[in-house]
């Protein structure tokens, strides 16, 4: 049997109490913070994984904010498209009607409405989002279109000030997305122009100005053979853009839902790495507290007794 000395009792009691106190402090901190790990030393692998996951969550959260920005852009451009589509539809109606009108005054009245439609189209095309012209590509610090009026009030020309580049944003790792549309793209390559694009035969302002001029010149018959065809191409082009915009918004909705799912999943994964099993920690704290009380009681009794108590 091992010989146990007076010092051994005291040393072991102090050592055991120290261990129990450390365990109590650990469980208390876990319960108070709800976390199993706080510092890298607690569980280096879990901390490493939690930090990686948190970095990923930060990036995914940014994708969510990018998607929200892209939705704003898509909604704004959709409004512009619908406005321009209405204008193109009205212009087409006027083209059909003007074919049967021979009176110069009636044609002039139609011409005045077409001039207004052009002005309205320019105004819509110059819509801005947070100060940036939405139809100007990346050269968006100025209105997308500048209109030149003649002395008689007719629109002589509409000039595109933007470029053919569209800004894109990340909506997922390695996945860039653009919700922007350029107003004019006469180059025949790159993003499709909403108002002017030779690939679809669209040139809304060119067709409207020609229509306006034909009406002012009293050449209603020319409208059917040339301008009406062009205006139909404009309307078709706008419809294609509206459809594409709808698809974009759908994709953004889907991407947004993916982001929400990923954030929830990441939250769960981070919780799995760092969060404490509260019930388990409470039970263990309870056990530790009981051990502490028992150690104090028994230790106190043993330390207080010796042979001295029984020798006269």
């Amino acid at each position: 049997m091992m010989r146990v000395t007076s010092g051994t009792y005291a040393d072991r009691l102090v050592s055991n109490l120290g261990n129990i106190t450390a365990r109590q402090a650990k469980y208390q901190a876990q319960i108070a913070t709800g976390q199993r790990v706080t510092l890298p030393e607690d569980d280096p692998s879990a901390v490493r994984r939690a930090l990686d996951l948190d970095g990923e969550r930060g990036r995914v959260g940014q994708f969510g904010r990018n998607i929200a920005r892209l939705k704003e852009t898509a909604t704004t451009t959709n409004t512009v498209m619908r406005s321009l589509s209405k204008i193109a539809t009205r212009a087409s109606e006027l083209a059909v009607k003007s074919n049967s009108i021979r009176s110069a005054d009636d044609l002039k009245a139609y011409a005045a409405e077409v001039t207004q439609l052009i002005q309205q189209a320019v105004s819509s095309s110059n819509s801005t989002l947070r100060g940036d012209a939405v139809m100007a590509g990346t050269r968006n610090g100025q209105p997308a279109y500048t209109m030149t009026l003649g002395t008689d009030g007719r629109v002589e020309s509409v000039t595109y000030n933007g470029n053919q580049d569209v800004p894109s944003l990340d909506i997922a790792e390695g996945q860039e997305f653009t919700a922007s549309v350029v107003g004019s793209n006469p180059t025949g390559s790159g993003p499709a122009g909403l108002i002017e694009d030779p690939r679809s035969g669209a040139d809304l302002f060119g067709h409207l100005i020609a229509f306006q001029n034909q009406l002012l010149a009293g050449k209603g018959a020319e409208v059917t053979s040339t301008t009406a065809v062009g205006l139909q191409a404009d309307a078709d082009n706008l419809l294609r853009h509206i459809a594409a915009n709808g698809v974009s918004q759908g994709r953004l909705e889907a991407a947004g839902a993916t982001v929400t799912d990923r954030l929830q999943s990441l939250e769960g994964q981070i919780a799995g790495e760092t969060d404490v099993d509260l019930a388990k920690a409470l039970v263990r704290l309870n056990e530790t507290q009981m051990s502490y009380q028992a150690a104090l009681q028994t230790g106190g009794k043993i330390l207080n007794m010796s042979l001295m108590d029984y020798i006269r």
Partner: peptide, 16 residues
């Protein structure tokens, strides 16, 4: 330390 105490440590009971 416990082993050494068991050899070299002072026991009050023993000394008494």
């Amino acid at each position: 330390k416990g082993q050494r105490d068991s050899v070299s440590g002072v026991s009050v009971d023993e000394e008494m």
